[in-house]
Design a protein around this nucleic acid. Structure first.
Lengths: 138, 138
DNA sequence: TGTAATTCCTATTAAACTGATAGGATTAAT
DNA sequence: ATTAATCCTATCAGTTTAATAGGAATTACA
């Protein structure tokens, strides 16, 4: 399941991308338009900022803005920040690899084989989708 | 993340498939060989039986066996039984569709678009993988 | 210089889910 | 009968998720 955190985060990024060129976008405005609990959204945008995807301006008239062009923001990056590893199993993760304690031989493991395929096909989608793609109306 | 339930279930099915042609395979044997907590595995195999993937024989010399050829058991079926919907979001699920309460227009939703692509690519893997594929010694 | 508006940070919470265990009922072979 | 297996229900501790609360820090601007 996709967590609400990720869902909200993606919606917020899309919202900001659609405003681009103007002033920073405020959490309150996003929350209202996308029907996201504001306090929850605050913490999500903070995460995206710490990950370097968003920048922020504090104080009155503050808000959030993209650090890169929407076309330069890949879903691989966003999903890893919000949802964590893309692989469904650590023993198949590119960025967060971990050996299974049970499995004696990874290459003989049927789950391992299957999960590599799932990872690759999902990765293929995320690598070929940018925030710009998400932001297109239609 | 793939649940342990699914991971254990897949390993167990693979184990049974590799024995095929002989007597029913006992939970204890699978548990030992695959290092799975036996009681937990019992409940998993029960689920697979109720879903029609496994058959069982009770009492002494009892155990579990496949109801179909390994080559006829698709990962779509197995994964749905063990892990639930393949889609990461209900509004994109083929078999368990549910509307989002927040989203006013599904077709305008950026998350929706992305998750359809992920679903399709994952589905593509599961539709083209059978238990026979998993069971091949590499 | 003060006030309002905003991000930033930490802590807490209720509910759900996960992984596992416990105990015994039921069934079948010998 | 006895033994060995599946079947079934309940329970539990731990983790995660989604959300809330409260206020500190920062900035615009009158």
């Amino acid at each position: 399941m996709l967590s609400k955190k990720t869902k909200y985060g993606l919606k917020a990024l899309t919202f900001i991308a659609r405003q681009e060129g103007e002033d920073p976008v405020q959490v309150g405005e996003i929350a209202q338009n996308e029907r996201i609990p504001q306090k929850f959204l605050e913490s999500i945008l903070l995460t995206l900022r710490k990950a370097g995807i968003l920048g922020s301006k504090k104080g009155k008239h503050g808000g959030y803005y993209l650090r890169k062009e929407p076309s330069a923001i890949l879903m691989t990056e966003v999903m890893r920040v919000l949802e964590g590893p893309i692989a469904m199993v650590p023993c198949v993760s590119l960025n967060y690899y971990e050996k299974c304690d049970d499995c004696p031989d990874e290459n003989a493991c049927s789950v391992h084989k299957l999960m590599i395929e799932v990872r690759d096909s999902t990765l293929n989608v995320f690598r070929n989708t940018t925030l710009e793609d998400l932001s297109k109306e239609n």
